[in-house]
């Protein structure tokens, strides 16, 4: 399993569509391993192709449109949107199951995230183990 962070320089890109790179972390070696630069103006489908090529199963990103999120989730990539902060902090928060901390959410977006979590059947705020379990189950099916 690998996760990708949609980045703008050293922080999560405020808007997913304007990310300048993906920082990719492979599970088991939680270090930022690969930076894939993104030329501006890529379509959602081109972005999905890049994520698929790197076998990404979880995407951590900032504000994302419902359309892009549906497209990416349609490719069986779990999207955790509306995050903010420096890349290393967000990655550490993900692996420590602490993304529920309000400091990781863009202003005004925590309520949206909670509704989504309820809809998707996640019990609480983002939980790394829950998502890992989902991804493992996906991997087997």
């Amino acid at each position: 399993m690998a996760i990708a962070l949609a980045a703008s320089q050293d922080h999560i890109a405020t808007v997913f569509d304007s990310a300048d790179s993906f920082v990719i972390i492979n599970a088991g070696t939680p270090e930022m391993q690969k930076i894939e630069s993104l030329p501006p103006g890529l379509s959602a489908m081109q972005v999905i192709k890049i994520l698929r090529d790197f076998r990404i199963t979880v995407l951590l990103c900032g504000a994302i449109s419902g359309f892009s999120q549906q497209m990416i989730e349609g490719a069986d990539i779990l999207v955790i949107p509306f995050l903010k902060g420096e890349l290393k902090d967000v990655a550490a928060g993900f692996f420590a199951n602490q993304l529920g901390d309000p400091s990781f959410f863009l202003p005004g977006c925590r309520g949206w995230w909670q509704r989504m979590a309820t809809e998707k059947g996640w019990e609480e705020a983002p939980s790394c183990t829950e998502r890992l379990r989902i991804q493992r189950r996906r991997g087997r099916s």
Partner: peptide
């Protein structure tokens, strides 16, 4: 327009509140 309340917005970075495609670049 943004769906962000005044209480949540004031004191925050404007790019994180507005979330426009031009904010980062």
């Amino acid at each position: 327009i943004t769906g962000v309340s005044r209480e949540e917005a004031v004191g925050q970075s404007c790019r994180e509140v507005l979330k426009a495609d031009v904010c980062d670049r």
